[in-house]
Simulated scan of single mutants.
Amino acid sequence: MDVYGVTDIGCVRKHNEDCIHWQALPGENRFLAVLADGMGGYGGGAYASKLAVEYFTKCVLSSLEYIDSQNNESVMKMMAEAGALANNAVRQERNNHPDFQKMGTTLVAMLVLDDEYWLMHAGDSRCYCASEDGLQPMTRDHSLVQELVDKGSLTEKEAERAPFRNMLTRAVGPDRSVQFSFAKHHFQAGESWLLCSDGLYNTLPDAVIQHWMHSDRTAQETAAALVKESVRNNAQDNVSVIVLKQDATNRSKQYGHLSATGR
């Protein structure tokens, strides 16, 4: 597996509130990738995303060797516990600091276990899969706009311009518990994946994202190109990506942790 991530402050924001982490896990084809997009102002947002990623990652790493990776309930329970731990950590800091009363974060994680992968998310950070069929979203936003689209009250085009499109219905930190969405998928030949914050997909059209994901570039080159294209298109928010490709001949850096960083 070829994995690499990049985060950038974008063209408007003064601070980067995103955090990304990826690393190889013990075993032949096992990886963890986690991305969080903080909210609540620089101090709170950056801290929330960092806390969520760190607590989630630590819990997964400490639990993985003790679970049956072939047992769906076991894997889902482990990831749910890691998500709950991340939520508690962010919420505790939110309650302890008056300046952080609005802090919270999205969280999207991809856990690769041999020939299958698990996705877990809360909020509007996304996972896409690029294949011969095109670019497909593998997660569904937890947002007010998505709910209105699902109900038929808004079209997809109207949703792109809605002034309240950043209002989340689920996030890590604001409430005592958070309901994460889970999905399990089997690898298909030729697939590659992208975890990203809304700063990417709100800036680049799917066709551009698909072009780079389908290119023969390494994960590092693809991630860098996607962020560069976003900045060139005047990204209004922080932009973060983690690219995963099934190309064992081009192995990029097998570990990375980036938070509150800019260009």
Rank of each mutant, 00 (worst) to 15 (best):
L119Q: 04
Y201E: 02
S259I: 06
T57F: 08
F180V: 00
A260G: 08
S62Q: 14
N88W: 07
A248W: 12
K77T: 11
Q101E: 10
C19K: 03
S230F: 07
C11Y: 06
Q254A: 11
L226N: 04
Q146G: 11
K14W: 09
W22Y: 12
S177L: 11
A189W: 08
K245R: 14
A130N: 03
S181E: 13
T106S: 10
N250W: 09
Y255T: 14
A130Y: 04
F31C: 06
V149Y: 05
S69F: 06
H211C: 08
P163G: 02
V145E: 10
D150V: 00
G123C: 09
H185P: 02
G190M: 06
E160L: 15
R217Y: 14
S125I: 06
Y47Q: 12
N234D: 14
D99P: 00
L195A: 08
R251P: 07
M1R: 01
D68R: 07
G152A: 07
V178S: 00
A224W: 12
A224G: 13
A223I: 05
T155C: 02
Q179A: 14
V6K: 08
I242F: 10
P163W: 11
E54W: 09
K151S: 10
A82S: 08
T7N: 05
M110C: 11
L51E: 15
A80K: 13
S252A: 13
S143E: 06
L154A: 04
D8M: 06
A260L: 08
T106W: 01
E54G: 11
A183C: 01
C59T: 14
E158Y: 00
W22R: 02
E65D: 12
Q92M: 12
G10T: 03
V231F: 07
K253R: 14
N250S: 15
Y117T: 03
W212A: 05
S131W: 00
G5Q: 05
F164K: 11
M103C: 05
P98E: 09
L135E: 03
D150A: 07
A207Y: 07
E54C: 10
L200K: 03
R126P: 05
R13L: 10
R30E: 10
